[in-house]
């Protein structure tokens, strides 16, 4: 492989992984936009998506597409459960309390997962074979195309949902003007519930499409969830397109860094970018500066 082919290969890997980060970041954004909560358990949705698919295939003997569907619905339900059981009862919802609660939830879910599935990694078969596609001297795994295709559909789907449907618009309204939204009869509590379900859904999808490339395991959620959050911050927290740009940027930089500098520092590069963003442009690439107020 020539250097340029290598770089092309890194770019392909970077975009694939970056797309996953973007999906996970989108899960963060959906909840953040409706509640201003950062759900640190987002990564666990990703892990649950993969592992529930594995179990549906093994125990229920479902073919992959149905197993995936069962998993996605299951994780969406777990998302709503998280909202009802751990977020709603909080009397004083200040950020620190909520951060600690969602971290607690994340640890709890991970613990339960390790009791159910043990600590071994599980494979999921690739969706359409594993014959790599040649691409200007680099190779593309068919699963990469699945990842990008699914992510694109999700992004477009959400675009339609938030832009066109009553429920989607109501969710945005209750996020920005909760009191006004209540006055016009929007059930804001229900909107928050939906946002947790959707967030679980998108997290699970990310977990399922990436599993054939990286296996799935009870503890994969921590790092991948945090990376998704990095993507959201880099793009601009709560920004719809920002997270896509942020995720892919992060994926590419990380992959180039790992390939050209050292793979051991891969995560350090990701979090280094995060810190630089937070210090110098906390509103993200696409975010607007907030008016400074009291």
């Amino acid at each position: 492989m020539t250097l340029s082919q290598q770089i092309l290969q890194y770019l392909i890997t970077g975009v694939t992984v970056g797309t996953i980060y973007a999906l996970i970041g989108m899960g963060f954004n959906i909840i953040y936009n409706s509640t201003e909560i950062i759900n640190f358990a987002q990564g666990e949705f990703v892990m649950l998506g993969g592992l529930l698919t594995v179990s549906s295939m093994r125990i229920l003997h479902l073919p992959l597409p149905f197993a995936a569907l069962v998993a996605v619905i299951g994780v969406a339900l777990i998302g709503t459960l998280l909202n009802v059981a751990a977020i709603r009862p909080v009397k004083d919802p200040n950020p620190i309390t909520l951060i600690i609660i969602t971290i607690g939830a994340s640890i709890f879910i991970r613990g339960v997962a390790s009791l159910i599935w043990g600590k071994d990694p599980y494979p999921i078969p690739a969706f359409s074979g594993e014959d790599p596609i040649q691409f200007f001297g680099a190779v593309i795994q068919p699963q990469s195309l699945w990842v990008m295709g699914v992510a694109l559909s999700i992004v477009l789907g959400f675009r339609q949902f938030f832009g066109k449907t009553i429920t989607g618009k109501a969710m945005i309204a209750s996020a920005f003007q909760p009191r006004a939204a209540r006055l016009v009869g929007i059930d804001t509590r229900f909107m928050v519930l939906i946002s947790f379900a959707l967030s679980g859904l998108v997290g699970a999808v990310a977990g399922i499409v990436i599993a054939p490339m990286s296996m799935t395991q009870y503890d994969i959620g921590v790092m991948i969830g945090l990376k998704g959050f990095c993507a959201a911050i880099i793009g601009g927290l709560g920004h719809f397109w920002g997270v896509v740009i942020g995720g892919i940027t992060l994926g590419i930089l990380e992959s180039l860094g790992a390939g050209l500098i050292s793979s051991g520092y891969k995560d350090a590069i990701a979090f280094g970018i995060l810190l630089l963003m937070l210090f110098f442009r906390p509103q993200g690439i696409l975010g607007k500066t907030k008016g400074d107020r009291v």
Partner: peptide, 28 residues
């Protein structure tokens, strides 16, 4: 100095990122 200008989630995330980076250096 730059970290504590941040609030809430941003502060949490920055300190978390710092912690992870330091641990990677211990490893590498």
């Amino acid at each position: 100095i730059p970290t504590l200008k941040l609030h809430g989630h941003y502060l949490a995330m920055a300190t978390l990122g710092f912690g992870i980076i330091v641990q990677i250096f211990f490893k590498e």
